[in-house]
Amino acid sequence: MSLARIITRGSAILACAILLPTQAFAQAQAAAPSAIPGALDRAFGSMGGTGGQGMTLSLQLLMIMGLLTILPSLILMMTSFTRILVVLSILRQALGLQQSPPNQVLIGLSLFLSLFVMAPTLEQVSNRAIQPYSAGTINSEQAIQNAGQEFHKFMIRQTRERDLSMFAEMAKAPKFQNTADVPFSILLPAFVTSELKTAFQIGFMLFLPFLVIDLVVSSVLMSLGMMMMSPMIVSLPFKLLLFVLVDGWALLMGSLASSFG
């Protein structure tokens, strides 16, 4: 089995485990210690070598600890977080502000706006995966599959066909009959590439009005012979005034949310 498939399956298992309710976790803790190796063997048995023998418990735990380091990045890359954070960072540069708003504020704002954008998808994940698993109507493998399908639907809607075709050709994958057949190993890099491209397009449109202010201020200072004064110092108050007068934060947040359609 390829390393990409192992990472994808292991990360999906960890993501589902994090999203499961505390009731299911309490039931797992109440189980006998001897049942833990068996559960891990059932989860990772197919990743082992030939002959139907799964990996040892120590190796399984080592893989889990390693996957925990990439799980946050993997989850963030599968949501709207990337586009929002990049656009907010470009806006700060366009305004000429170096540390305001600080990085913590931008990350927090991006996270909560991502939760707002992802609310329909997360609701479907709860209805199709978390709640049935808590009720015992489906097993963990089915819950992971149902949750992955909902994230797959969101990601495929935001991915450009050109980016998807590029990574499919690089992977020498056969032609897909429908979008549901696209594997995560191809969809994930195509989705991130499309998100970055969209974020830079939005950032370019944000830069234009502030660039006009910088050019006007620079021309005025040159005509007055005030070449020693930095145009950034003079243009910054005007850019902040323009951004506040047009209610820039509300417009930006609304535009970002609606851009996911």
Rank of each mutant, 00 (worst) to 15 (best):
F112W: 06
K172Y: 09
Q158L: 11
Q104H: 11
N103H: 01
P102S: 08
M155I: 10
F167V: 14
S110C: 04
D163S: 13
A147M: 09
M155W: 02
I156R: 01
S134K: 12
S114K: 02
A129C: 13
G148F: 00
L122D: 05
L106Y: 00
P101V: 08
E123W: 10
S140F: 11
K172W: 12
K175H: 10
G148Y: 01
S140H: 09
A129Y: 04
E123I: 11
N146R: 08
R128G: 08
Q142H: 07
M118Y: 04
R162G: 10
R162E: 13
I156C: 10
I130G: 11
F167R: 06
F116C: 14
L106S: 00
F112K: 03
K175I: 12
L115I: 15
L111M: 11
S134C: 10
F154A: 03
A143D: 04
M155G: 04
L109E: 00
F167N: 08
Q145F: 10
E123D: 12
S140T: 09
V105W: 04
F154P: 00
A143Y: 02
D163R: 03
Q142L: 13
P132C: 09
F154R: 00
M118T: 02
K175M: 13
L115V: 13
S114H: 01
L106R: 03
P132E: 10
M170K: 11
L164H: 02
R128L: 14
R160D: 15
P101W: 03
F116E: 11
P132Q: 08
A147P: 05
K153C: 12
E169D: 12
F167Q: 07
N146Y: 08
V125I: 15
L164V: 09
R162K: 13
V125S: 05
A173T: 09
S126F: 07
S114L: 05
Q124N: 15
T121I: 10
I130K: 03
R128T: 13
G108K: 05
A168L: 14
L109T: 05
M118Q: 05
K172R: 14
Q131Y: 10
A135I: 11
L122P: 00
L113M: 08
V117C: 03
I130M: 15
M118H: 02
A135D: 15
T121F: 06
Q145D: 15
K175N: 10
A147T: 02
S110K: 01
R160Q: 15
R157M: 14
A173S: 13
Y133S: 05
F167C: 13
Q158V: 07
M166Y: 07
Q142I: 12
F154D: 01
A168P: 05
Q131T: 14
N103L: 03
A119L: 13
